[in-house]
Design a protein around this nucleic acid. Structure first.
Lengths: 327, 327
DNA sequence: TTGTAAGCGTTATCAC
DNA sequence: GTGATAACGCTTACAA
C-alpha cells in the first residue's frame, strides 16, 4: 500500500505538504495541490488508520455492543446506528457480547485496545462493571447509573399492554416475563403489573430468556390453557409462544390472544400477525449516536437520559369483542 | 491508558523486557517476569492495537462483509464466523455493504485503511471489482473467479426443490427467483429448471430481491392462483409469499404449497412452518474462516473452492399426497 | 507556502 | 538475560 512518503516522492514534495493537502489542514498552492492529488489518486493512496490513530489518539470509530444477533431487534439497531454514525464520519464496529458478563467485559476490554472513540452499549445485565471504561459509552435499551442512556418507555409499554388486555375483556393471563436481572424487563413487568392491578389475574408467570426457544417450564405453562392471553416480554418470546400454541392446535387469537413487545420486522410476518408495542428503533439508534457524539465533543457534560415513546400496534394476534361480534 | 513505558517504570525494567515477557518472545528470568506481570495487571495494561498493527503490519482482525443484516441469514453467518475467528485468535469486524456496488467498494476500501488481515466477503453482485483488494478475501455464498470460495450446492438445492415438488404431485408453479445478477440465485434457478424440465410448468416467474417485502408484480402474480406451488429463491422471499397468501385467505399448504431455501431460524417459526432447503450455515462460516486462515499462512496457494451439501427439510408448508390421504 | 523533525506505542535488531 | 534504539505511517509545531 502506498504511504504518504510514496505520494510525496511521486509529487516531488515533502510528506508534510501531502498531509496538509489531503487533510486541508493548511493552505497549499493550487499547483502543488494538484500535483499531490494527482499522485495520490494515481498511487491509490489510502491513509493508514493505525498510524493516524496512534498519532492523534482518535480513531473516528465507534462500537456497538449488543448481547446477541439472534434477536432481530439487534440487527435492526445495528442498521440504524450504522447509518447515523456514518453521517457523522464515524465507522462502526459491531460486537456481540455473548452470553456471559465475563464475555462482555472481555469484549469491552478488547475495544479499548482498539482505541474506539466511544461505544453504544446494550449491557447484558444491570450490574455495572467494576472498572470504568476507557472510553465514553452510551447505554441503550436500559438505564445504567452514571451513563448517558437512551431507551424506550418500557413501563408505559407494559401499562399499554395491560390496558389493551383489559379493554379486550381478558382476565386470566400467562405472563412470560424476560430476565428480571434486566431493568428493562423489570420496567415492562412493573408497568404491566400496575396496569393489571385488580383487573387481570396472572395465572402463571414464567421468567424466560429473550429467545424464540422457550424453556420446558414455559411450554408446560402454555399447555395449561387456564388463560385467555399470553403476554411476552418481547416479540421473540411472543413468537415462541405463538409457535407453541399453534403446535398445540390452539387457535390464536380465537382461543388465546398473544401480545409482544418491540415490533420487530418478523412481528408482522408471522401468522397471525403479532399485536405488539412498537419501539421507535430507528430513532433510538440515531439518538444514541447523537448523544455519544455530543459527549465526544465535551466529555464533561452531565449524563443525559432520553426516553422514547412507545405505541401499541394492534394486529391479528389479539381478538377484540368487536371482531368476535362480526364473526 | 497504561503503556509499555508505564509498566516498565513500575517494574523497574526496560520496555523491551516488558514486551518480551508479555509476548513470550524471549526468555526472561522468573523473578523479573513476576514483577513485570504484577505491574502490568496492577496498572491494567492493555496493548495498543494501533501501535502494534503499525509496527507489525498484522492486525489479527478479519472482516465479514455482508450485503445487509435484514436477512436473518447474515446475522446467523456473523455468529458462526465470529465463533471460529475468535478460536483462531482473530477479532471480527462486521460490515454491511449496503445496497449498491459503489457502497460495497467504498467499505472494502475503508477496510484496507484499517489494515484488516483478510476478509470474508458476500459480494453484492458477481462483477468482480476492477481493482484488486489490498488483502486476501474468501468469497462466501457465491463463486467469484480468482478467489477462495465457499458456498453450498445451490444447484443441487434447486434440483431438490423440483424433485420434491414433483414427488408431491405438483405441476403448475409460481417461481419467485432471486436477483439473477447473482450466480447463487442463478444456480438455484438452474438446478430447479433442470429438475423441473418437462415435469413442472412455470406459470409465472418473478425476479424479486431477497426481502420479505415483495414487489407489486410478485404480489399480483401471487393473487393469480393459477399454481399449486410457490418456490421462493430463499426463505425470506418464501415467508413474504406466505404472508401475502395468508392475507389473501389462501390456505397453505392445502391450496398452495410454499418452498424456501436457507433454513433460517424463522423458517420454523412461521405458520405453517416452512419446508425448505437447509444450508449448513455454521459449517459454511467456520470453513470460510479456516480457508482464510490457510491463505493468511500462505498467500500463494491456489484458490480453493468448497461446496457444502444441502438437505431438504420437510415441514408444514408443503402438502404430500400421503398427508392429504389421511385427512 | 513549504519543509524538518518529534513523537504516538509497539516490535525487533543488536549490543552489552 | 536485559536494555538502547530504530522503525512502522502519520500529524503537527516550528523553522525556513
Amino acid at each position: 500500500m502506498a504511504t504518504l512518503k510514496d505520494v510525496a516522492e511521486a509529487a516531488g514534495v515533502s510528506i508534510a505538504t501531502v498531509s496538509h493537502v489531503l487533510n486541508r489542514s493548511k493552505a497549499i498552492s493550487p499547483e502543488v495541490r494538484e500535483q499531490v492529488l494527482e499522485a495520490a489518486t494515481r498511487l491509490g493512496y489510502r491513509p493508514n488508520r493505525s498510524a493516524r490513530t496512534l498519532r492523534t489518539g482518535k480513531s473516528f470509530t465507534i462500537a456497538l455492543v449488543v448481547p446477541d444477533l439472534a434477536n432481530p431487534y439487534f440487527p435492526e439497531l445495528v442498521q440504524a446506528v450504522e447509518r447515523s454514525a456514518r453521517v457523522l464520519g464515524y465507522a462502526l464496529v459491531v460486537v456481540a457480547s455473548g452470553d456471559s458478563k465475563e464475555n462482555e467485559w472481555e469484549r469491552l476490554q478488547m475495544l479499548s485496545e482498539y482505541s474506539v472513540d466511544g461505544v453504544i452499549w446494550v449491557p447484558i445485565s444491570d450490574c455495572s462493571h467494576q472498572g470504568a471504561l476507557a472510553f465514553p459509552a452510551v447505554v441503550v435499551d436500559r438505564p445504567l447509573a452514571g451513563f448517558d442512556v437512551v431507551y424506550c418507555n418500557h413501563y408505559e409499554g407494559g401499562r399499554l399492554v395491560a390496558e389493551h388486555a383489559i379493554k379486550l375483556g381478558h382476565r386470566r393471563v400467562l405472563l412470560l416475563s424476560g430476565p428480571q436481572a434486566l431493568e428493562s424487563a423489570r420496567m415492562r413487568r412493573e408497568g404491566f403489573m400496575a396496569g393489571a392491578a385488580g383487573r387481570l389475574e396472572i395465572v402463571s408467570e414464567q421468567e424466560v430468556p429473550f429467545s424464540v426457544h422457550l424453556p420446558e417450564a414455559a411450554i408446560r405453562a402454555l399447555n395449561e390453557r387456564n388463560f385467555s392471553l399470553v403476554v411476552g416480554a418481547n416479540d421473540v418470546i411472543a413468537i415462541g409462544a405463538l409457535r407453541a400454541l399453534t403446535k398445540a392446535k390452539v387457535d390464536v387469537p380465537r382461543q388465546v390472544s398473544v401480545l409482544g413487545f418491540d415490533d420487530i420486522t418478523w412481528a408482522s410476518m408471522v401468522t397471525p400477525q403479532l399485536t405488539t408495542i412498537r419501539q421507535p428503533i430507528n430513532d433510538i439508534g440515531s439518538e444514541a449516536v447523537n448523544v455519544l457524539y455530543d459527549r465526544l465533543q465535551d466529555p464533561n457534560i452531565l449524563p443525559r437520559e432520553t426516553v422514547m415513546p412507545v405505541t401499541l400496534i394492534e394486529r391479528e394476534s389479539t381478538f377484540t369483542a368487536r371482531k368476535r361480534g362480526r364473526e
